[in-house]
Design a binder for these strands. Sequence first.
DNA 1: CGAAATCTTGATACGGTTCAACAAAGGTGG
DNA 2: CCACCTTTGTTGAACCGTATCAAGATTTCG
Lengths: 236, 236
Amino acid sequence: MELQRCTVCGIRGQSICNAINDKELEILAQASSRLTFPPATTLIEEGSPAIAFFNVTKGTVKLFKSLPDGRRQITGFADVGHFLGLTNARTYSFGAETVDTVQVCRFLRPQLETLLTDYPLFERRLLTEITGELAEAQEQMLLLGRKTARERIASFLLARMMPPSPHADSAVEGQMVSLPMTRVDIADYLGLTIETVSRTLSALRREKIITGTDNHGIRVLAVSRLEDLASGQDNR
Amino acid sequence: MELQRCTVCGIRGQSICNAINDKELEILAQASSRLTFPPATTLIEEGSPAIAFFNVTKGTVKLFKSLPDGRRQITGFADVGHFLGLTNARTYSFGAETVDTVQVCRFLRPQLETLLTDYPLFERRLLTEITGELAEAQEQMLLLGRKTARERIASFLLARMMPPSPHADSAVEGQMVSLPMTRVDIADYLGLTIETVSRTLSALRREKIITGTDNHGIRVLAVSRLEDLASGQDNR
DNA sequence: CGAAATCTTGATACGGTTCAACAAAGGTGG
DNA sequence: CCACCTTTGTTGAACCGTATCAAGATTTCG
């Protein structure tokens, strides 16, 4: 678990540090420490004191809530650029665990308070970020409350589709979707069981809407078919 | 539809205006207009341009998202003190409709921008508010993705229980729960059908966990039983 | 290479939906 | 203020999509 100073936040362009100008960047660097964690590391334990705040600079973190009997709902995946750990309460109401190898910038709570008051641009950026998270949460509530298993899988694949890279490998057909998480995680995110996730992906593969035997990388052959599916236009 | 200037925001103690000091209050008053709407009025149409931002000062507003075929998910109820309409996009990704008679303070977008930059306390308050909304959204995702119908109803009743008023009417047994919305709204909020909501409430009534024949006012007789139910401790 | 973890597929069960009929509440005009 | 009509809520019976239980296949990793 390497620990080093984040003198210049490496992913400034896509991270929250983006909001801060050059003079401020130095202060930010002193306020945060960069940490690297292996897969399946607990970053936040549900109910523990809310002492830190993270900005993901590499990898994917899953956020979740659990019931006493072990049922779990993953409320989101925080990819590069996203932050996590903001809360009003003294304790976290959710847990966070790394999916793959993850690098973060960590701010301790007093540091965060200082940053918020001293750097208005930082606070504004945070407000924008969290407003976007709320919109995503609302979309997910629609999915969990009203969509069928097929529609959920289709929505999930679309949401996780990489934006078509400019120097795309046009030799390979289909849009790439990266799925670093396991079937269990997908199921717990979509409010399904692993069996239903597996069956539904198999069905889409059979129908030539997706391809790829690799479990953590799928290719979408018919984006528009998926879009129809995701919004309930076309179930069969 | 009455329209008047909100010179001194009447519910300052519990509203977002709370964040603003006396000097600033006057400016806020000039930036907003107070409006009253009858039940079932559309405040925000899904997909329409995001021109305004509201603070609820009386009544309850429902927020929702819909699918093309009409399936609907209510993502939250905004009661007194809550705001709605904040978004990063140029259009709203959700709809909003009054449940009962509703009074709001409305800010137009440019006014909001000004307030945010000029009054840091206002911006901070907004960040706190929306952080709380995100936590609620996560709790609701757990409900929608992983709880049974019984657990959903129990959770809903608990969440809507009035805080026991200091001058409580101790002559009447049981904690009051106000349900201004219809069964359809409750169903669309909990990801169930109206029939299941009705059946489940009847079952809880039969089991003497709740009472009250009035559809919009229920009394909880056994709070701790409900709490067990809501977290999946005790299903029968 | 071998063991453990992860994923897939099949058979059966069940919670909640759907369809249907009726009951109760609310609102309106005479 | 009541009779009528419309809206909202309740209850029952049958059905269905997804969960559960079970077995086998594949992948991962030491």
